[in-house]
């Protein structure tokens, strides 16, 4: 903020304002300019605490633990993550990808990476439709279903990669092909070079 180029999509950046300032800004906007946005239910954990907003390490750690606990409780509260998966794959994955890594849109725009988003950001995005994103209001996908969806995503995101520590950022086949060539085949060719290397004193 402010955006240097109104046509270009804003990438995700660390916020400049503190949460308090943002709250004030929103309050001002709602009071003086616009109508309030769609409501977000209580209990959807908000933003990840930022270190800068806390005086000492201890209170930050405390706030962080509190946030994580709230997210954990929110995820636990979802009763049908299988339905959440279905909803995610039908309505979200075509833009944001199966792993939430984002994807290309037309006109140089992109569907952003979801993996840093807090549950509340998920929720707000669905009901407000930022950028080119369509709305998914509370009638088409109820708050409970939204909780399922978000819980599914967070569970998937936090699941360790059973296939090994290098998950290639969960990009999928493009990254696998790239690694297959650059690491796999190259290492084997290096072995071939070792085996066939010339053993000679001169030339």
């Amino acid at each position: 903020m402010p955006s240097m180029n109104p046509d270009a999509q804003m990438p995700r950046k660390p916020p400049v304002f503190t949460q308090e300032q943002i709250d004030d800004l929103v309050a001002y906007y709602e009071e003086e300019i616009g109508v309030a946005g769609p409501p977000v239910p209580e209990g959807v954990p908000g933003n990840m605490p930022r270190r800068a907003e806390y005086g000492d390490e201890e209170s930050y750690e405390e706030a962080k633990a509190e946030y994580e606990e709230a997210v954990g409780a929110y995820v636990q509260g979802a009763d049908d993550t299988a339905a959440g998966e279905k909803l995610y794959l039908t309505n979200c994955a075509h833009c944001h990808g199966w792993s939430g890594g984002g994807g290309a849109l037309t006109g140089g725009n992109f569907a952003p990476d979801l993996r840093e988003a807090s549950p509340r950001q998920f929720y707000e995005a669905m009901v407000t439709g930022p950028g080119a994103m369509p709305y998914f209001n509370d009638e088409t996908i109820t708050p409970d279903e939204k909780q399922d969806l978000i819980a599914h995503f967070l569970t998937l995101e936090n699941e360790p990669n059973a296939g090994g520590i290098f998950a290639l950022n969960r990009v999928g086949q493009v990254a696998e092909g790239f690694i297959g060539w650059t690491v796999g085949l190259s290492l084997i060719v290096a072995c071939a070079i070792w085996i066939t290397a010339k053993q000679r004193a001169h030339d």
């Binding site: 309505n91 369509p134 709305y135 209001n137 009638e139």
Partner: peptide
């Protein structure tokens, strides 16, 4: 129909 009513720009599969 009214589920999609409140905001134009909504979408659902």
């Amino acid at each position: 129909a009214e589920d999609l009513e409140n905001e134009p720009g909504g979408m659902i599969s």
